[in-house]
């Protein structure tokens, strides 16, 4: 495998041209890192990413590719999002195959059984480009997939940037299990972020595992998750609010990965076990005040415990979060402030 590349003078702009025999496991990473998809190892390939794509500092992608980067050439020779610059004179650099790092070993527990709920057309995730901008996750027909990981297919610049930011900063669901470690490196577990104009006004986003494969032992081996973001409403909200929605939907994806696809109310689980994940993400990444962060994290969880809640359960939660969780009135006000963009930072 050989890689020819050029790099800008800063860490945030790259253009790669790749040719040679490259293992398919290597290059086609999430478009949050590299905006191209690599399909075959059977013939010579020559690819380029758009110049505005970037590799997050400290990621594996960066550490593997940084050594193959070069000083940025004159702009006119490389600012071409489609074609590669003339690169015959570039030195060739051998890039090792990371051997699919971070592949989750198994699909986690599988609680199974099923009870009623809401379901839409599954719409399989096929190639990353199918159905982009639509409201169903694409039909996947004809696609044999297999090399997709985390796809950001959102067109709206504000939302797209937020998805990138969250993917790059990563979300830790629990020790050693993050958005990137589960969905970022394995072709077996894929997540696709898309925007939608058809979600109801009060629905800011949703997540659906459009494809879950169980083996004969009932273990989850593969999964495609599609996250839809409401492009009508979200861009007017603050970045903190949008981040909360994306994190919330990512937790849904994670719960599917954990096997909670059937009768479990995922919002119950989220409220009892993952409120901290969302709230602390906001605190750590947006310096959101703790009470605001927990109020935001509660957004979308008002129906949690609808069937099973009792005073004892709620009392236990209040005891656990104590001063972090304002009362309902204050929470609602805080949530509305961030939703309208009155509080927090503007999304550009």
């Amino acid at each position: 495998m050989k890689i020819l590349s050029r790099k800008s003078s800063t860490l945030v702009e790259y253009c790669f041209c790749i040719r040679g025999l490259i293992s398919r496991n290597y290059v086609d990473k999430t478009p949050a890192f590299l905006n191209f998809v690599f399909r075959s190892r059977s013939s010579v390939k020559r690819l380029c990413i758009s110049p505005w794509a970037y590799i997050a500092p400290g990621t594996l992608a960066e550490s593997k590719l940084a050594a193959a980067c070069f000083t940025r050439p004159a702009a006119e020779t490389w600012v071409d999002p489609v074609g590669c610059p003339v690169d015959n004179d570039l030195p060739e650099v051998e890039v090792p195959n990371p051997n699919n790092p971070g592949t989750p070993g198994d699909g986690g527990t599988n609680p199974n059984p099923g009870t009623p709920g809401d379901t839409e057309t599954p719409g399989d995730t096929g190639t990353p480009n199918d159905g982009s901008g639509g409201d169903t996750p694409g039909d996947g027909s004809g696609s044999t997939g297999g090399t997709s990981y985390i796809y950001n297919l959102v067109d709206n610049p504000c939302l797209s940037g937020m998805v990138d930011a969250i993917v790059n900063s990563d979300i830790t669901f629990k020790a050693n299990e993050t958005l990137q470690s589960i969905f970022g490196w394995s072709g077996h577990f894929n997540i696709k972020f898309m925007e939608s104009t058809k979600l109801a006004d009060d629905v800011m986003g949703n997540a659906q595992a459009t494809r879950i494969l169980y083996d004969a032992d009932g273990k989850i081996t593969d999964m495609d998750v599609t996250v839809l973001l409401n492009v009508k409403n979200l861009p007017g909200a603050s970045r903190e609010y949008i981040a909360m929605v994306i994190a919330h939907e990512s937790v849904h994806a994670y719960l599917n990965y954990q096997g909670y696809s059937y009768n479990t109310n995922q919002h119950d689980l989220m409220l009892s076990q993952y409120l901290d994940v969302i709230a602390l993400y906001l605190v750590d990444n947006y310096n959101t005040p703790v009470q605001d962060a927990y109020s935001l994290a509660m957004g979308g969880l008002y129906t949690a415990f609808q069937n099973s809640i009792n005073n004892q359960t709620w009392a236990a939660l209040e005891e656990r979060y104590k001063n972090k969780l304002p009362n309902l009135n204050d929470r609602s006000r805080i949530l509305a402030d961030y939703e309208t963009g009155y509080k927090g930072s503007k999304c550009k």
Binding site: D118, T119, D124, A207, Q208, G218, S261
Partner: peptide, 12 residues
């Protein structure tokens, strides 16, 4: 080769 191919619910 055996797989159970499942389309999950929409979670909001």
């Amino acid at each position: 080769i055996y797989y159970k191919y499942v389309a999950g619910r929409v979670n909001e």
